[in-house]
Write a protein that binds this DNA or RNA. Structure first.
Length: 468
RNA sequence: UCCUCCUUAGCUCAGUUGGUUAGAGCAUCUGACUGUUAAUCAGAGGGUCGCUAGUUCAAGUCUAGCAGGGGGAGCCA
């Protein structure tokens, strides 16, 4: 077979259309379908570079039957041929094959993917093959684009990417149940005289866990580099059975010195709009597919979010609106308790019909590090609530006052000795600062219109499921 | 952890008040067709009805338990 430099299908069918008709090309990819008759076969070939398949036209008088039999749905082939304008309907270009090499066959009896649609539930059972579907190709390309856009957004604004640890020795974040990290023998761990597990003999000499947040370390970075962000995996051992939770997920946490809560909200809103705009500008072919197949209002919703200001209001105002709404809620509305999902949904989807940023929550329902207001009962927290997915961002201005911070830590019974390094920042050159956390998969849910978070990460980790 | 729904062919589903040999579409295999677009047409093969126990003359269908999955709640991002 003649050796030619491989062309990716996106170079032919993408917006740039870098290759013109008449060019001899080599294409490599996976067969989606083959159809035809005795004299001609049509192969729909996809290489993952773009959602569209390219049509390979095979003149059967030139190719032997043996080779053609090997080319089935799921097989991998390399094709040399000439790019021509297609005489058929349905595609502008096609490739007239001159040589074909079969890299890998796919037994038609046992290959699980068909050209017909599958349920997302079935595809989760074959997560090793689902990237070969249109849906997961689209989701994974968008996921990549959003990941790149996160770094571009912060880099363009002078933020530094700070790598916070995955293994942590403090369990004071209070963000949820943690996964223990240990090298001790689970069947026969060393014990202290009182019968407890003796972690002094463990790898780190003390109990350690997978991180639930990089925020506390992010603050250390912000109080030196001014503006930093983390973007890494985080872990929650909570047994959550919902389409919005994973045990392992990716989180983006910017942390900014000299930002107050309003600067923080401005950044969060600008950030989300930037990401959605980036998808609209760079992923339209994939978005159109998802819009057509899963969510007819997807693109409209994305445009709406980028074109309208988020509604900002106090927790207390939200309570008033909910009380006056006349709506029947399963859970009563009551100042001092956290808003339930149904309350958040009402605010976002019914009352304001746009993204909402809620601020100044009661201090009892928020974390210890949030800046206390002068009213002595609320803190400068902010939650960004999105339609369909609820809380997409949670953040706050941080308490920079040493005395107020340590008082709160003691009130909540958090062991101060574990937090000495965090408290030290308030002792030495403290500064007003703020930050927030964006759940990356929740962003991808919103941008793709997918309904289940297990379908926007390649290999989801949930309770009782760590396959692949 | 709680509530609720689902589990029948490789996939997506039908299956009536419990009644004889469990069906369809797609996929697969065989054949037909000179340009197809989820190609079409003809034929064939393919089932421990999630598992276990029970009720009954008789269970895919009713009951209980278990397993797996979906949705909702809680926890949160």
């Amino acid at each position: 077979m003649e050796s030619l430099k491989r062309t990716r299908i996106v170079e032919i069918l993408g917006e740039k259309m870098a290759i013109t008709a008449g060019t001899k090309v080599n294409l490599k990819g996976w067969v989606r379908t083959k159809r035809g008759n005795k004299s001609v076969a049509f192969i729909a070939l996809n290489d993952g570079s773009i959602i569209h398949n390219i049509q390979i036209v095979v003149d059967l008088s030139v190719f032997d039957e043996q080779t053609m039999k090997l080319i089935t749905t799921g097989s991998c082939i390399s094709v040399n041929g000439v790019l021509v304008e297609s005489p058929g309907q349905g595609q502008a270009f096609e490739v007239q094959a001159s040589e074909i090499e079969v890299y890998g066959t796919a037994d038609a009896e046992t290959y699980p993917l068909q050209k017909k649609g599958h349920t997302l539930e079935f595809l989760r059972e074959i997560a090793h093959l689902r990237p070969r579907t249109n849906t997961f190709g689209a989701v994974l390309r968008i996921r990549h684009a959003m990941s790149f856009a996160v770094h571009k957004f912060f880099n363009d604004r002078g933020f530094y990417y700070l790598h916070t640890p995955i293994i942590t020795g403090s369990d004071a974040e209070g963000a949820g149940a943690m996964f223990r990290v240990t090298t001790l023998d689970a069947k026969n761990p060393p014990l202290t005289p009182s019968g407890e597990v003796d972690f002094t003999n463990d790898f780190f000499g003390k109990p350690t866990n997978l991180t639930v947040s990089g925020q506390l370390e992010g603050e250390l970075g912000a109080l030196a580099l001014s503006n930093v962000y983390t973007f890494g995996p985080t872990f929650r051992a909570e047994k959550s059975y919902t389409p919005r939770h994973l045990a392992e997920f990716w989180m983006i946490e910017p942390e900014m010195a000299f930002y107050d809560i309003n600067d923080n909200m401005d950044l969060a809103e600008e950030f989300l709009k930037y990401l959605v705009n980036y998808a609209l500008d760079n992923c339209m072919a994939d978005l159109e597919f998802l819009n057509k197949m899963y969510d007819n209002e997807l693109i409209e919703r994305l445009r709406f979010v980028t074109g309208n200001a988020f509604q900002r209001l106090d927790y207390t105002e939200a309570i008033d609106i909910l009380m006056a709404s006349g709506q029947k809620f399963e859970y009563p509305v009551d100042w001092g308790t956290d808003l339930q999902s149904e309350h958040e949904r009402y605010m976002v989807e019914k009352h304001f019909k746009k993204p909402v940023i809620l601020t100044n929550y009661p201090k009892e329902i928020k974390a210890f590090y949030m800046k206390q207001n002068d009213d002595n009962r609320t803190v400068r927290a902010m939650d960004v609530l999105f339609p369909r997915i609820g809380e997409i961002i949670g953040g706050s201005q941080r308490e920079e006052n040493l005395e107020k911070l340590t008082n709160r830590i003691n009130e909540l019974g958090i062991p101060e000795k574990d937090m000495w390094w965090y408290i030290d920042t308030r002792r030495f050159g403290t500064a007003p600062h703020s930050g927030f956390g964006l759940g990356f998969e929740r962003l991808i849910l919103f941008v793709t219109g997918m309904a289940n978070i297990r379908d926007v990460i390649p290999f989801p980790r949930t309770t009782q499921n760590a396959d692949f």
